[in-house]
Design a protein around this nucleic acid. Structure first.
Length: 221
DNA sequence: GCGACAG
DNA sequence: ATCTTGTCGC
């Protein structure tokens, strides 16, 4: 059975894991994850990308029923089963994980990107489409900073690939030394869209795969 | 008590 | 996230 108390205990227990891993000097590959839900089924997708060229290397899919509902600030407990299964399917070990959601910019500093990084012992970065926690501070260069409500510590950067875009919120997951490093690692992955290309790709694959299953396969591929 | 609340 | 059509704009 699930409840907030168990979720919170598990989340805080994970927080005490030692980060005995860190980013390689050179990041060669990045793995992006996303999960969508269609007709009661969860469709998880991972895509391995070459970091330098931002070209697709591998794509894997996992389809299964979710174990628990979505509970605000406990997203990882719903989506982590997909991420773990997807990670096992990869034929090559990635250097960096890119997660659709927050990392450190979370009420307990334990967003899904952080939980994923700690669980898999891999450096991770979170990219979320909406703010969850923290105060938004406008900066001169057009982008904004998210800071902790009390400590005022920087938690995330609100980045707009184009001025007319709504921002995405980039935050440290695990194994990345600081926010500015996380941002500089993600920026090269943007290709003129709101989200970095690897995340945009897995999101699209997840949606189309979900619809294909829901509507029934009309053709064999 | 009230409102907010990633995906 | 999902339920859902057309529509305005670059």
């Amino acid at each position: 059975m699930w409840n907030k108390e168990r979720f919170q205990r598990a989340q805080l227990a994970l927080r005490s894991i030692k980060e005995d891993f860190s980013l390689n000097q050179c990041v060669h590959t990045v793995a992006a994850f996303d999960v969508s839900f269609q007709a009661g089924l969860g469709v998880g997708v991972v895509a391995l990308f070459n970091y330098q060229s931002v070209q697709l290397m591998e794509c894997e899919i996992v389809v299964k029923e979710p174990y628990v509902p979505y509970v605000p600030t406990y997203l990882a407990f719903r989506e982590m089963p997909y991420i773990l299964a997807l990670y096992k399917k990869l034929h090559e070990e990635p250097d960096l994980l890119l997660i659709d959601g927050h990392g450190k910019s979370h009420p307990r500093g334990m967003g899904i990107a952080t939980q994923a990084g700690l669980s898999l012992r891999k450096p991770s970065i979170g990219v979320a489409k909406r703010l969850l926690f923290g105060d938004l501070l406008e900066t001169a260069d057009g982008s904004s900073l998210v800071v902790h409500p009390e400590t005022r510590e920087p938690l995330a950067v609100a980045y707009k690939e184009k001025p007319r875009f709504k921002p995405v919120f980039i935050s440290v997951g695990a194994g990345v030394s600081n926010l500015s490093e996380a941002v500089s690692l993600v920026l090269p992955l943007f290709k003129g869209h709101r989200e970095p290309e690897p995340l945009r790709y897995v999101h699209n694959v997840s949606l189309q795969e979900g619809r294909r299953m829901r509507d029934g396969v009309q053709q064999v591929n």
